[in-house]
Amino acid sequence: MTTLPATTEKKLGLAIDLDTCVGCHACVISCKEWNTSNYGAPLSDTDAYGADPVGSFLNRVHTFEVTPDLGEAEKQVIGETPIAQVVHFPKSCLHCEDAPCVTVCPTGASYKRTEDGIVLVNEDDCIGCGLCAWACPYGAREMDPVEQVMKKCTLCVDRIYNENLPEEDREPACVRTCPAGARHFGDFADPDSNVSQLVAERGGISLMEEQGTRPVNQYLPPRQKTLADLAAKNSGFQGGCGTALAAEAKDAPGFFGWLDRALDKMG
């Protein structure tokens, strides 16, 4: 059925920390790797090494520049002046509570699970009409160019409950792989969960709220950085980091230290 459940027992989803994400795209690749070899049809690429490569991905990282709109007051104290900053922005299915992609589906292929709120596509029922992708404001659904069925994030439903995997691997591939720890997986229905706490602490934001989709996934906004932060960072790099490197070169211990000194003596 493509009617939405009134409520779900759990609200599994991601909290994505925009302050921490470094835009390495590891989540994109890890997602593609896991999902091309597991749930449903593979995520195909066409003309992968040619001039016009196109492929389906369930997760994409956009990079935005945010320029503060400065009021007069903020210009007065130079140190506190907010500066423009680069924000890396991973985007995948938000597993919305009012998921418009589900209700438009004519075949019942799209559905939202009552037990955990995950939005899935039963690919055997998908006719590839594309209407669900039109209904999604976030670009979370992509038609696979080869299989011609709709692909979307499954929240790695085949990992998170998978008892054949070691316990630490039972989370979405993107979360497991993120080297910066910017992605957090948990149950938003539980106010004490890691993700609920993060959202409460950091003031989590919903994307395009005016669409009324009530996304489960939340984004933790980046801190506003100021000219003072920039100055501190730069001085740290020259004074701290630079001298540390120089010291390391001078007093390298062990065999390489000895080799270094020996080679120096050769003139």
């Binding site: 925009l18 935005f64 320029t67 980046p222």
Partner: peptide
């Protein structure tokens, strides 16, 4: 509104 970043400034696509 799409990025939710309106609170800290105006947004443009960098990459």
């Amino acid at each position: 509104t799409a990025t939710g970043l309106g609170g800290i400034g105006s947004v443009r696509l960098l990459e």
